[in-house]
Design a protein around this nucleic acid. Structure first.
Length: 583
RNA sequence: GGCCCCGUAGCUCAGUAGGAUAGAGCAUCAGAUUUCUAAUCUGGCGGUCGCAUGUUCGAAUCAUGCCGGGGUCACCA
């Protein structure tokens, strides 16, 4: 249960009562009313702006409305005190019993705590990675991969029906170049000396593909014209590259439900279908684009081409859908792809792209508007660059010099959990530094460690408690039946309140499509837990284990177990394994 | 030149569908350890939220215009 949603409903209920009683006029718009935690804890546990928002439409002084609400709010379950503050805030303090009940919720739910029905099982499609199948994944791909994977998990936790999708760009000129590169490797495998010309893919990872083809095909394509072997080589190589990509993603713990092929779309006539739809609606025309303002590309020439009327849907210019050789542009196929997603039932689509594709967002969104009659929505999440450092020194990356850092290198070096967590410690549209030295160091500076350590520390205390008090006294049943009302210290209640925020965090992060908020929340939670742990040094009475008060000890163990539950719940969304020990 | 993103403490960044006195970490200064793992914690210092108008009861948050940084700009994907 998201307690803020709960009390928002209660407050709007009170407003209805006031309307019925004639104290407020009917027909008030409640949509702008918020119920949230106040910034300053001295203002209570929850606050609402209801009185201020209703002031104007109700033509009443906000403090007057607040007074009407306060009189009723005092009687709500769990509410201990109500006060009116500032311009008309209604601040409420909830009873200790209420918070103890929330702690009970955490213990009952375990890692499932925070699961929400917010999404109401609505279908959402999250497309991420979608890297060209032309080689192994590099670190730049990792961020989008983790972001998409975790956003999908977050949406699932918030109650959406999520499909994780990968779009294979296997129809363009690039895969042709790839197939030619492999043909050279094939000749090499047959014993020829080769040089790889500029423009083809020089990577070693194609050597084995060439060998495999030499083995299965023999030398029959040695002297054959390209048109005879190109399709075969394409198919074989794409399949091999996708195996490579999937293996890399698996190492990172990233999975997809659906792989869609651009080539399939083209071959199945989906592109024609989508374009026919646009044509029937008068949204395609032959035209000549204005040259871009400012510096012109060197090879610019005015050319008549088939254009989609993107400007009618919010884009800046109309967009070409057909190349001069008659084949479809990438954009045309991508339109067909998104229409296909829409027709498969995904009115809500999310795409995760690199920030260098930012210029493409408007045209895709305008296409979706045109193709779905404004019924489909696309949110594009752009992920900024990751800069790799080692102890502050940039790690040089260049495909040519061979110091190219692959995704696999990074995962092998620091582990998938570290890569995943760090990728989420920044907003997606902010740059991110990934420092090999920092992300593996065991200190406060390293958020992965810090959060993991809090989880490990809970388990450590648990082990210690069993050792000191015996397993007969400290066990699951005993902890579950603990007298939670014994938790009455301000610091303990404060920690419980933070735990109770988790369902709200899940919902807001999911709604905003911002998984990084979870990382910050987990950091805050870990900090508060570590702080409480340390309080036990200054004040022995605040230690978790109090040998001569088993009842209190069990209550505190229940509390810290709840901390571990919520951390584990968050890490589960991240696809990071919580550790129980960090020696 | 157009479009998109960013601009918050010395540094790295949060800031919850506009909310009350803008927060963390690092750095720096002063402290805490015969430990339930100090791999941690407590306190001090530190800000014209790039600038200016506007909308609003209320703006770091929304709108418009500037300034600065990055990305991108017809038949690549």
């Amino acid at each position: 249960m998201n307690l803020f949603t709960h009390y928002r409903e209660a407050i709007t209920g009170l407003i209805d009562e006031l309307i019925k009683a004639g104290d407020l006029p009917a027909g008030l718009d409640a949509s702008r009313i918020t119920v949230e935690p106040p910034r300053d804890p001295s203002h209570g546990d929850i606050t609402t702006n209801a009185a201020m928002v209703l002031s104007k439409p109700a033509q009443k002084n906000p403090r007057e409305i607040a007074a009407l609400l306060a009189a009723k709010a005092e009687k709500l379950d769990g509410v201990q005190a109500v006060e009116i503050a500032g311009p008309g805030f209604l601040n409420m303090r909830l009873s200790d019993d209420f918070w103890h009940a929330r702690l009970r919720d955490v213990l009952d739910a375990g890692v499932a705590y925070g699961d929400s029905a917010l999404g109401a099982a609505a279908k959402v499609n999250v497309e991420y990675v979608s890297a060209n199948p032309t080689g192994p994944m590099h670190v730049g791909h990792a961020r989008g991969a983790v972001f998409g994977d975790v956003l999908a998990a977050l949406l699932e936790k918030a109650g959406f029906d999520v499909t994780r999708e990968y779009y294979i760009n296997d129809a363009g000129a690039q895969v042709k170049v790839l197939a030619r590169s492999v043909h050279l490797r094939y000749l090499e495998a047959l014993g020829q000396d080769i040089t790889i010309p500029e423009g083809l893919y020089p990577g070693d990872y194609l050597v084995d593909v060439g060998k495999a083809l030499a083995k299965s095909e023999g030398d029959k394509w040695k002297d054959a014209p390209e048109s005879d072997w190109i399709d075969l080589f394409k198919d074989f190589t794409i399949a091999a590259m996708m195996e490579l990509v999937k293996a890399d993603l698996l190492a990172l713990g990233v999975k997809h439900d659906v792989f869609s092929s651009e080539r399939d779309l083209v071959e199945n006539g989906k592109v024609d279908e989508a374009l026919d739809f646009l044509k029937d609606n008068g949204l395609l025309y032959q035209g000549v684009l204005e040259p871009p303002k400012g510096k012109l590309p060197d090879d610019w020439e005015a050319r008549e081409q088939l254009l989609f009327k993107a400007t009618a849907f919010g884009d800046d210019v109309d967009r070409p859908v057909q190349k001069s050789d008659g084949t479809w542009t990438y954009f045309a196929a991508d339109m067909a792809y998104h229409l296909d997603k829409y027709r498969r039932g995904f009115a809500e689509m999310i795409d995760v792209w690199g920030a260098d594709h930012g210029g493409y967002v408007k045209r895709m969104q305008s296409a979706i508007k045109a193709l779905t009659d404004n019924k489909g929505t696309l949110d594009v999440k752009l992920c900024q660059m990751v800069s790799l450092l080692d102890n502050g020194v940039p790690v040089k990356m260049s495909k040519r010099s061979g110091t190219f850092v692959t995704l696999r290198d990074v995962v092998d070096k620091v582990g998938k959990d570290v890569v995943r967590f760090i990728m989420l410690t920044r907003k997606n549209d902010a740059g991110l530094e990934f420092d090999f030295a920092k992300v593996t160091e065991q200190s406060r500076d390293n958020p992965v460690f810090y959060v993991q350590y809090a989880h490990a520390r809970v388990n450590s205390v648990m082990r210690m408690a069993v050792e000191e008090l015996s397993a007969d006294v400290v066990n699951d049943d005993a902890i579950h039946g603990a007298s939670l009302e014994r938790l009455d210290d301000a610091a303990e209640l404060s920690l419980i309140k933070l735990l109770a925020q988790w369902p709200r965090m899940v919902e807001s992060a999911a709604t905003a499509h911002e998984p990084h908020r979870v990382a910050f929340y987990l950091g805050d939670l870990a900090a508060e837990f570590h702080a409480l742990w340390n309080k036990g040094k200054d004040n022995k009475g605040l230690r978790f284990i109090i040998a001569d008060d088993v009842d209190l000890t069990l209550a505190r163990l229940a509390m810290i177990r709840a901390v571990a539950n919520v951390i584990a719940s968050g890490l589960q969304v991240f696809g990071v394994t919580p550790v129980k020990e960090m020696r």
